[in-house]
Design a protein around this nucleic acid. Structure first.
Lengths: 338, 338
DNA sequence: CTGAAAGCGCTAACAG
DNA sequence: CTGTTAGCGCTTTCAG
């Protein structure tokens, strides 16, 4: 059906090897033959078969991307970044959604590993040893997760949390609740650490409300405990949780930000659309995907050296102040508050 | 690095072909040798190289999926459905996001076509002739779009709109506004048709407010015109638009549903989270992805016959009544309303 | 600078 | 039931 390299060779009156060279190492071939070959290729609509090429070069020109759940708006953003950058480099992207199933994750990765040059893994759950094992014989870049010796793109969770706390303290809050994500989540743990450090530095109290699903429902579930904690502000594991919080608070007749301020993390599109609009720490999700691709491609071009192994890109978050910590909630002039 | 079929053959003391057979046509090989081969394969962690296999069988075991914009929550759902079903059949999925760029779409499709057995296209924008041309020499299944002679999975837009109108009419609405999507959108056109037909049947008036971007911003832009139309209810092109509408109405102090009722289409996750929760027509997005895979796989197994070419799966929507058309808006007992 | 030959990992005849 | 042979489409020595 599709034209092969030999069809082009015949039409151009040269050998297959010349076609191959003319197309992938233009400099090494006579200008006129090159032109002839290119014309022939054009005419036939020839495009090299990547699979066949990969068989011999050991490079497929494809990369794999594994995400836990596309329904969480965080991940489509990362995927978009990966896509865009991959396309720039003319590499195709295999996508796998593990549905938050750490076991499936490993299986999928193994299956994919055979037909790609490298893998980008957003795997909050998978076992650290398994990740290390996979990284041992495949090019792997981790996103939003750190494992010894594996290149990764992460977010500066500590810094983001510091900004959130500073903002809340400036508004007069002295007791702040933290609604954490899943127990096993790497980023939840790091956000927690940053929060405690910042709270300590500012001399304010942080109350840990517990671990919840990283979803709208998780936020609904956490809301009552957050209220009961007596805090005047809540920081949620992510925006989805924060929005769940908002919903439950509204249902209970608790006004945000007047009665309670809420801060999320991620800055998903939905955050601007919630009522009230959500103050959140914007994470450059798309950028993370782009950088992951660059890192991966660098590893593929030049595997092994220490310049890359262990490399990490750290991206900084940026506080987006919106209505959920609005001025109405300024407690600096309210003597009744502790 | 990775074990090849010959490594397994050597370890099992058989020939490469026997390994190949033992693994892919187990019935045709002696039970004891088969066991030996399987053990060897296991021990070496052998997995066949799909690219090499594809070279000879002409089947890659991969499919391609093209979507216009992952940031629109509609598409991640479809992708999830495709993923899940593809995994069941042990096929891998290439994903491409065209960023709403119809031109890029074609280029991407051509590039992908070489390394997949078939393509699932969610291409609201691409030119009809181009789609037909692509479908002529590649297995293609369209989602949410109909082109002569190309298998497709679509939604019953007319039926969905009929449900929406029936609901609004039952609540006493007699003048309903329609906020359409992009001019070139296939589904916007069909939704419009369904709406007019239903309005006509019920003897109520439908006001076309115009075409808007299928986004939150589009909804914001449409809100004032919807209000000015004098309608008591609005049907929006999709949920994102409806939620934009809600935001702008709120900003203007117009209460939903008391002053104006709003209905969306899609039932994205966000719809349950908006305030008020959005009444919408639920489209089985994930199911659409699953069916698209089944259709595509059927075409691949058995290309050409008329049983498939021209086949279409039509999925029906389901009205989800929520607060944005709440009881408070019941106009049946309100004599002041027309 | 170009052609011929070899072979990537695998499967499909074809013998045995 | 199993081994041998050939070759998918391509790149890469190796000669010329």
């Amino acid at each position: 059906m599709a034209a092969t390299i030999r069809d082009v060779a015949r039409l151009a009156g040269v050998s297959a090897s010349t076609v191959s060279r003319a197309l992938s190492m233009p400099g090494v071939v006579n200008a006129t033959t090159r032109a002839r070959v290119q014309a022939a290729a054009e005419q036939l609509g020839y495009a090299p078969n990547k699979a066949a090429r990969g068989l011999i070069t050991g490079r497929t020109g494809n990369i794999g991307l594994v995400v836990p759940d596309l329904a969480n708006p965080f991940f489509p953003s990362v995927v978009k970044g990966v896509q865009a950058r991959a396309r720039m480099h003319d590499v195709a992207v295999f996508l796998a959604d593990t549905d938050e199933d750490a076991a499936a994750e490993v299986g999928l990765v193994l299956a994919l590993a055979k037909q790609v040059d490298g893998l980008i893994l957003c795997s909050p759950r998978a076992d650290e040893d398994e990740l290390a094992a996979i990284a041992a014989d495949t090019n792997v870049v981790l996103v939003n997760r750190l494992v010894e010796g594996v290149p990764a793109v992460t977010f500066d969770n500590e810094g983001g949390m510091r900004q959130a706390i500073a903002h809340l303290v400036a508004l007069g809050h002295r007791k702040i609740a933290w609604v954490g994500g899943p127990k096993t989540s790497w980023s939840s743990a790091h956000r927690s650490i940053g929060l405690y450090a910042a709270a300590h530095d500012h001399g304010v109290k942080l109350v840990d409300v517990g671990h919840f699903a990283p979803t709208y429902e998780g936020g609904m579930a956490a809301a009552d405990q957050a209220v009961a904690s007596g805090a005047t502000a809540v920081v949620a594991y992510n925006d989805l949780v924060a929005i769940g919080l908002l919903a439950r608070l509204h249902a209970r007749g608790i006004t945000v930000p007047d009665d309670l301020s809420v801060v999320g993390i991620d800055d998903i599109a939905m955050s601007r659309m919630s009522r009230p609009a959500l103050t959140t720490v914007r994470l450059p999700k798309q950028r993370a995907g782009e950088i992951a691709v660059e890192l991966l491609l660098a590893m593929i071009d030049d595997p092994d050296p220490d310049t890359i192994i262990g490399t990490r890109g750290t991206l900084h978050g940026e506080l987006m102040v919106r209505d959920s910590t609005g001025l109405a909630a300024d407690r600096t002039s309210d003597p009744a508050r502790p």
